[in-house]
Design a protein around this nucleic acid. Structure first.
Lengths: 334, 334
DNA sequence: GATGGTTGTGTAATCGATTACATAATCGAG
DNA sequence: CTCGATTATGTAATCGATTACACAACCATC
């Protein structure tokens, strides 16, 4: 493999000059520039980036830590990140934690090792202090999930208010026995969505029935199984608000398998607005998050941190939207 | 940030000794080892991997090039790759081409730049010569998609035979007017699946009707739109074989929107067996690929190439399976 | 034609770890 | 007790690019 020295020798210049040509840093005569370019061409030279990285101590690479790469929600956020990264010449590395907090911690270590210039976490399940300490020294942005009471830059929606909105919609349609399929309680998003659900019930003076709140793990299967549990209750719910679309679809399937109809017998509302929510029949009423935009904004914040512009650490809350489709039905008759 | 020199100074040893402790290379007294470890601890030292990379000229990182990260099929293959990579201490970097061949070409360049030790392509749409030349010098493995007439190591299923199997199933059920929604014709997988479809028709002496073959692009939307076109034919098909599940689901939706029933009026078969194929109603009859295993095998082949073991270049063909569900219906009456 | 500024190029240090080679210390066998 | 082998450690070169600094050549100005 040809190195910069070989190019320099062939073009009869110093390595410094070759480097200047490569980086388009000025002060090179057109004539020598041509000579160098010819040599590069002739040797089929490709700069070894490791040398550059070491010298400049930056890799122009960022890592995105995702709890579950198979979840289409995150793919969309990722697209937003990629778009901005590409535009600024950054590469995006992907870290899949498969919902394992220990892996999350391991990825964190790539920062002091200088493997990446910055990191975006789409999951935040490790000890707050750990992340905070790292964030003091290195560029870190949180998106979607967040940590309470930190000033780490964060991009998300207001999960409490959107969960309240979703629940209120069901109440408005005349439902009183509304169940909630939550996400895992160790995740703040799950707690927020649960809180929004409670707030809506309280505002309309509907008593909480603990049996109607079931903790899932955001998978289709958990939605299916928990819905079966709800259906087996003495006094089953007339509506289910699930903390994400996959669980909502699981719930619909469970209801059907028990001979029920959605929305006629039981109304269902989801969260996230993944593509399948609009394709599935009945189409799923849900909360739409601006996935692509969350990714974009997160990457923009990260770039500010890396490049040291924009001093203040910011926490962005993006608008969400209740998308009313078929699965929640219309106003209840009686 | 502390460097190896700082550690050496504090522990009163040379950098060589520190390095030996770090890499667990023998020949260090337990006593000095302890002293070094204490110094590392005290300084909160993390080795800067860029130095190591440059010196050793390897990054223990592989890149996986994916045509579309939002496609759940690839996420599963990726999981298989990750599993094997992790086990062998390799990191996995992800490159999303968004179906753009130019991006694919750009990623290829990371190899001579020494950014990664090897690459797995889940897409192969650039000029064959380009890939072949690179594959002669660097570790490259193809998976899912492949290139005709090369000896680059490849992992895939036999797309021709599986497409034939799917089509034959429809014929066996009594269908004669069978349409095919293909993928883009510049992709070999699409051509293979189309060929399998033709083979099945030929074997049963069914005449090909060009109007029944429509070229899509693997998206839900294209499946939907092309199915509408098929339905508008004077003599519409009684069955549709789609080259992937997302198009199959799109076709089902289109049929329904036109008032038709699946499978009663029109039978539908997909390809890939993504999760939604079993969840969607009607559940989709499809070809199941061993996605996780494809990933595993591809990464294993890549490791062999990187580590120079296993000289012969191998092309693996993994078994697939026809999964019969509801969307194809039973035997036709008349 | 001396002076100062600009421009183009080269020399060599540098980034941080690894490692070939040298050397010192220790041990065991005879 | 000596010699050779083994073990522990240090010295310094090395990976490939970038860049601070030096310097030469050239130009414009008065």
């Amino acid at each position: 493999m040809a190195s910069i020295k070989d190019v320099a020798k062939r073009a009869n210049v110093s390595t410094a000059t070759v480097s200047r040509v490569l980086r388009n840093a000025g002060n090179v005569t057109e004539e020598t520039r041509q000579r160098v370019l010819e040599a590069i061409e002739a040797l089929n030279y490709q700069p070894n980036v490791l040398g550059r990285y070491l010298r400049r101590m930056e890799t122009e690479t960022v890592l995105v830590v995702v709890p579950d790469i198979t979840n289409p929600f995150f793919s969309k956020v990722l697209r937003g990140i990629e778009a901005v990264a590409l535009e600024h010449g950054y590469q995006v590395l992907l870290g899949d934690t498969q919902n394992d907090a220990r892996l999350e911690e391991q990825y964190l270590n790539l920062l002091p090792q200088r493997q990446v210039d910055g990191m975006i976490f789409l999951t935040a399940r490790i000890r707050k202090e750990l992340v905070e300490e790292m964030a003091r020294q290195f560029p870190i942005v949180l998106a979607c999930e967040y940590l309470e009471g930190t000033d780490i830059p964060t991009v998300s929606i207001d999960n409490i208010s959107s969960a309240r909105k979703a629940t209120e919609h069901l109440i408005r349609l005349g439902h009183r026995r509304i169940a909630h399929l939550s996400g895992p309680m160790n995740i703040i998003l799950s707690r927020d969505r649960l809180r929004g659900y409670y707030q809506a019930l309280a505002q309309h003076e509907i008593e909480v029935d603990a049996a109607l709140v079931q903790e899932g793990d955001f998978t289709y299967e958990s939605g299916y199984n928990l819905a079966l549990k709800l259906l087996a209750l003495e006094n089953p719910p007339t509506a289910i608000f699930a903390a994400n679309d996959e669980m909502a679809i699981g719930a619909v399937k469970a209801i059907r398998h028990r001979g029920g109809r959605v929305p006629d017998d039981i109304a269902v509302v989801g969260f996230d607005d993944i593509q399948m929510a609009s394709i599935f029949e009945p189409s799923i009423t849900t909360i739409a998050q601006p996935m692509f935009e969350i990714g974009q904004k997160a990457m923009e914040l990260l770039l500010e941190l890396i490049e040291g512009t924009g001093v203040e650490r910011r926490q962005l809350v993006l608008p969400d939207r209740l998308v009313i489709r078929d699965s929640c039905g219309g106003e209840r008759p009686e």
